[in-house]
Design a protein around this nucleic acid. Structure first.
Lengths: 227, 227
DNA sequence: TAGATTGTTAATCGATTAACAATC
DNA sequence: TAGATTGTTAATCGATTAACAATC
């Protein structure tokens, strides 16, 4: 409670809602585009308009982590980019492990977007003998048996599960046992992990379901004229 | 306002929060697994426990759409599956158009999970001459020029944008102009559509960013002991 | 019947927005 | 200076949870 000499840099006071962190990623993506287009500064209302949020929301989200703006001016784009990167942790390099070298796995190995945010898949794993030893897009494919060893050795903290639903839980458990602390699960199945491990699920069919619902219920959202 | 003879079947009274529809998809996925494992019935607390939700939430979500349960018994799995499918619209067949036959696009063409929920990519589009004419996983690859014609003719209502960020907006506009009413955008860029068109964005790097944030802020979430 | 579980209302909790003094 | 825009507080809105009568 004694007056702090310098502000603690970029860590939030208390818990941050998931939705806020999600929007932070969107702000970052938009800011990068603004800089590419030659913008030096932006404002909460400008950034909000671009993404469909209110200006108040933009300011509130950022205020969880510090004072990044200049009253009367707005935000300097590059400065805010650097700040959000520090907040998200993408100012440092993140090696990623991927399990499952099927169609989708191969596509992820070649995906350029990861590197731009400082993620790199450095090791892939599969059980199929014919895939092992291969190097795809420069990423070595190891036998699943080697998972613990490789993940430990390279201190990999993030993993992607790209195996069939039937083996997703087992694979996720192995990743966690090897020290992984965050997992993206592409298998269309619920997996359960210790509360200390972070989990994001991407179910491609579910995304389409959200759309078919919306299309079927078009216009039904408003109270509806009775006949 | 005259008393209705029979209840309107599976349409909500008013607006349904997005989060509810999302959970509906999760319930469906879990119910399908329960049936596969031989369960006949479940309950709101059973289903909730499996997914990490409260029993009240499960009941409330379903109550938006009707009365599907039996007091004292719970829910009959197959019955609830059928109901949720009608709600989501996946009781009918949905032809889908995909634009962009790169690595990720090819992987999506081979993805089995869509068919199980009654979605099928029936047409793919690209600008690259060497890809056009090809048939990948049974899906014809058309020149982008043919988009309007094919989408109109087959009355396609759902589209997937799997092109580079620089062309995502243009491609999405074309899909909308051709009659598509829902789009999944895999390009890492914000796209803007008329409010009548539904949009879901999947940004793979953003998913990892959510995890790096969580890993970096581990333990920092609780109020924090000051020193 | 007693036990279980629903659908729904009221209470709680959390997130978004509006408003404005402080600042450049 | 006047105009613009921040950070933050208080008000509003919406979503989740608890509780319970009704039901099987």
């Amino acid at each position: 409670m004694s007056q702090p000499k310098s502000k603690p840099p970029l860590e939030p006071e208390g818990a941050v809602p998931k939705a806020v962190v999600n929007r932070l990623s969107l702000y970052l993506r938009e800011l990068l585009r603004l800089v590419r287009d030659g913008h030096q500064t932006t404002s909460s209302s400008h950034l909000g308009n671009l993404l469909g949020f209110t200006d108040a929301q933009v300011r509130k989200d950022l205020a969880y982590f510090g004072h990044f703006g200049y009253p009367g001016i707005g935000y300097r784009c590059q400065e805010l980019i650097d700040a959000i990167r520090r907040i998200l942790g993408t100012d440092r390099f993140w090696p990623v492990a991927m399990v499952g070298v099927g169609n989708l796995g191969r596509a992820l190995l070649g995906y350029k977007g990861f590197g731009q945010q400082n993620f790199r898949i450095v090791a892939a794993f599969d059980v199929a003998a014919d895939k092992i030893g291969e190097s795809i897009d420069g990423v070595p494919v190891h036998p699943l048996d080697k998972l613990t060893e490789v993940v430990r050795q390279q201190r990999i903290k993030l993993g992607m599960v790209v195996v069939p639903a039937s083996s997703a839980q087992t694979v996720a458990d192995k990743l966690v046992a090897a020290g992984v602390e965050g997992i993206v699960n592409f298998a269309p199945v619920t997996i359960v992990l210790p509360p200390t491990v972070n989990l994001v699920g991407v179910d491609l069919a579910m995304e389409l379901e959200q759309l078919s619902f919306a299309v079927v219920n078009r216009g039904n959202v408003v109270p509806a004229n009775d006949d």
